[in-house]
Design a protein around this nucleic acid. Structure first.
Lengths: 192, 192
DNA sequence: CCCGAATGAGACATCAATGTCTCACCTGCG
DNA sequence: CGCAGGTGAGACATTGATGTCTCATTCGGG
């Protein structure tokens, strides 16, 4: 939430445009520039003033998404303490930017660009390292590959974002339900 | 649904075309008809001979997807026996058609049609009923809503399908890792 | 009050995807 | 062999999205 000064009209902040675009595109990759603009509450002309074209918009979206997730990884301090607790902190941060994560998760095949691939690889490596540490410390199961757990983590975070968008899940519950399901599973404790 | 014999060339079966289309479109919703055709190993002209247009293709895709999932629900006999075991059977059936499920899961906002919405609602209700039964019998946790568990189930099945497509997961392991993660979670048993 | 900056609405050309068509080819069968 | 059905390649017009442009409007600041 940038509280910078806007000299004239109440311009919609660039980041807010990107957020709206991410949430729309994560659901409908075929959304037109006009739909994207209206979802952000601006006109198509203004959208084009911010981003040269669809390609530039998607590039900015990918860049911001990667940056937000990496900032989340930093904030979660995933190299410290109990792996399970680190994972919960990571999920806290990730669900906060679930919209962008859902976009990256579902759309990374489109508009492939080297920096985006590299950024995603960095994120993947860091999350994988955490899960590997958890496995080696005996906290996480050894019969589920870390690669699958990474995929499952992002899938659940993205799903939580969609559930929130669709009103099936309260935003404040997203982090908890993802963490509880990913870590503890769906079975009642007495039943396992 | 004509299951007639093909008298001349080795025609690519309609269902195989739909399967290829589902796997491609679940990843890249913007794929062109030409890309879809080539992913199925046929020409654009032949694709148009099978399906009047993109709309008809997507409709057929949705119809077949819903049908396959409902057949899977039938085969899994989810109303019988231990809910956890029923859920494992359901996941077995669902991962077998993960490509179609991933398509339906990610693309159901596009090309909305009444029969598709109704079909998805039927599936949702049946899976929800199973989870509700599991909760009432004390097998499934009561602190995770059934709506969330339904979303998570489909998200994990779809994710497993993508992981298989991308070569990060062996197809024969898909059912196991989804079921183990969804039911038991990622924590080592001794650690919880 | 007036000016400047940013916006929204709309016109316009361009481009890629789409849907339809024709035609030549191949294969299986009588 | 000759035919018939299915196919691939390609031409063609059409459509919708896109990118660029102009112009009037509006709001904030000096």
């Amino acid at each position: 939430m940038s509280h910078l000064r806007y000299r004239c009209l109440m311009s919609v902040p660039r980041e807010q445009i990107l957020k709206a675009a991410a949430e729309l595109l994560s659901r409908r990759a075929t959304a037109s520039m006009d739909e994207i603009a209206r979802s952000a509450g601006i006109s198509r002309a203004t959208l084009h003033r911010h981003f040269a074209g669809r390609e530039a918009l998607v590039a900015a979206l990918g860049e911001l998404g990667i940056r937000q997730i990496e900032e989340g990884l930093d904030a979660a301090r995933i190299d410290e303490g109990d792996p399970a607790e680190a994972l919960r902190r990571l999920i806290d941060e990730a669900t906060a930017v679930a919209g962008f994560l859902a976009f990256l998760y579902g759309e990374n095949e489109l508009y492939e660009s080297d920096p985006m691939v590299a950024g995603w690889a960095r994120v993947d490596a860091r999350v994988g390292a955490l899960l590997k540490r958890g496995r080696e410390e005996g906290v996480l199961r050894g019969d589920l590959s870390t690669a699958w757990l990474v995929d499952a983590l992002f899938a659940l975070v993205a799903a939580s974002g969609w559930s929130v968008q669709d009103g099936r899940l309260a935003r404040r519950d997203a982090s908890r339900v993802v963490a509880e399901l990913l870590l503890g599973g769906a079975l009642e404790r007495s039943a396992r």
